Structure formats: C-alpha cells, structure tokens
Amino acid sequence: MRRTIEEHLHKGELQEHLTMFLEEKDQFPFANMASCHYQAFGGQDESSIQTLSAGIELLILSFDIFDDLEDEDNFDAPWMKLSPPIALNAATSIYTIGIHTICAAGSNVHLLSAASRYALQSMQGQHLDLKNEMATEDECLEMMKLKAGSLFALSCILGTLLANGKAYPCIEAYAYQLGIAAQIENDYKGLFQEHNNDIKQQKRSLAYLYLSREFTTHSSEILSMIDHGRFFQQEFKDIIEYKEKLHVAGVTQYMNVMKNLAIHHAKKEMEKLTLPKDQLMTIQSVMFDKF
C-alpha cells in the first residue's frame, strides 16, 4: 500500500501524512476477505488480488478516518492530531487512491460499479448513524447493515467478481450479517472507551435502545449515566463493577444474543455456497475468525 501511495502522489507532506496513517494498520481483515473469496472461486493471478486487496484496505482506511473526524473521537489516531481540513483532505486522497487501485486490479467493468455501490451504502449508513434518530431495533440493525455490512460485502463481492465475474446473493447476505455482528461487538467495546463520543452524544445503539426500555433499576442507573454524558469511571468504583452492572441490567446478554443471531444468519447463508469442502472451510475460517 505504501508503494501504491508513492505511485499516485508526489513526494511531500501529503504523501508523508498518508504513509504515517498506513503505519496504524497492523491487520488487514478486509484484504483477507477479498483474497479468500478470490481463491475459492478460482482466481489465480496473485498480482491482481494483491492490487485489489491494497485498494480495498485503502478504502477502508479512508472510511475509518472519515468516521473518526465525524464522530470526533479516537483522539490517539494520527489523523486526529492534524487540523480537521488537512485530515479531511488526506482521507479524501486515500479514498480516491483506493478506488483507482481497485479499478486497476482487473478488466472486469463491474469492479468499479460494485465498489461504488457498497461505498455509497456505507455512507448512507454513516449518515443515519450521525443523524442518530433510530427508534427501534430494526432501524438500528438496518443502519449497521448499511454502515458496516456494506464494507464486508464490498470485500467479499469484489474478490469473487475478480475471480470469475459473478456475484452471488448469498455472499452479500452473509457479509451483511457479519458486518452487523462486528458492529455490535464494536459498540459493546465502545461502552468502555473513555474518549468514545457515543456516550456523550447518547448514540442510539442497540445497547442504548435496550437500556431505554428500563426493564430494571440497573438499566435506569446506566441510562441516567449516559443521558448525563458521564463515563463509567465517574459512576463506578472500577471497570469490574461497571461490567457487573451491565450484566445484571441484561445489556451484556442482549448484545451477545443479537451478535450471535447475526452470526447464525450468516452461517445459514454460507451453507448455500456450492464449493468444495476445503475451499468452504477457508472462507469460514477467515470470515468467522474474529468471532
């Protein structure tokens, strides 16, 4: 990816910023998703899948930066230490290079249209998240499907398109569900992050919607903490006490059930793939690795 950036930008401060941002990436899950689908569906050109994978990870990085800038959190990230206009321009540059690199991966004309479609869906999901008007569980799940699920789908579908030019509805379906599961897990972890603005902004996540039903006094206590923009360090003795409070309120169990339900739906969709057992197992190991 460093070479890709160097090929598209003249030496200078912007290139230095982008190179610095790349150093934050030590895992490449979206590239792995694309690669395992490419190989499972008959792809054999190592150069093409490497190019596609680089483009996808650059695109994902740009979305991470946009997300942090829009949510105004994750202050330790290098892009958050730059002035917002400079960081925004850098993110736009990464996005553009990512799209260009995806197009350069192969001659399939559907690569660009698929990448653009899923990217726009993710932007639509981010818009809904920023509007913060979700009132029901279904609305929240739809937002997560668009915001996170679309990026999972982008990686899997592009890898398959590059391999054989075909798109399979079941791949899109299980990618959406695993994106939802990943977002649920991320939202739960966000309950413990001091600089996560979800609490200050009373983000209508699944956890918040569950707490707002106030099934117990424990739910009411946590909801009051969030509604007053306070972090758990200000309310509880330590993180152990806070986790116990979430547990007795039912939040932990609810989030786990919702995550596992999405994973279950993904597995049912994956069963529709007609692939040799070893190739199917490879996809399963990559897609379910973080769960």
Rank of each mutant, 00 (worst) to 15 (best):
I99N: 08
A31S: 15
K147S: 09
E142I: 11
G159E: 13
I65F: 05
G190H: 02
G125K: 14
I222M: 03
D278T: 11
I184T: 13
E241F: 08
I97N: 04
K290W: 00
I199V: 15
D138Y: 03
Q39K: 15
A182D: 13
K189C: 08
I56G: 14
D68V: 02
M134H: 07
K277L: 12
S113Q: 11
V286C: 00
L146N: 03
L178T: 15
N256W: 00
I5A: 03
L191S: 12
S113G: 04
I171G: 09
K290T: 13
R2D: 06
F236A: 02
A173P: 10
V248M: 02
F75Q: 13
I49Y: 06
Y118F: 15
S48N: 14
H247F: 08
L112E: 11
T101R: 01
M33N: 05
H110N: 15
A175F: 02
K11S: 08
Q126A: 02
A266D: 07
I56L: 04
T160H: 15
Q121A: 08
S47E: 13
L22A: 12
R204V: 09
L120T: 10
H8A: 11
L161N: 12
C156T: 13
D198N: 04
G229H: 07
P29C: 02
A148K: 04
M134E: 13
S219G: 04
G98V: 04
K81Q: 14
C103P: 01
N164L: 12
H265L: 05
K259R: 14
A105K: 05
D26W: 00
H17D: 14
S35P: 00
N197K: 13
A173D: 15
I49L: 12
A167T: 12
D138E: 13
N197I: 01
L128K: 06
A207W: 01
N164K: 07
G125Q: 08
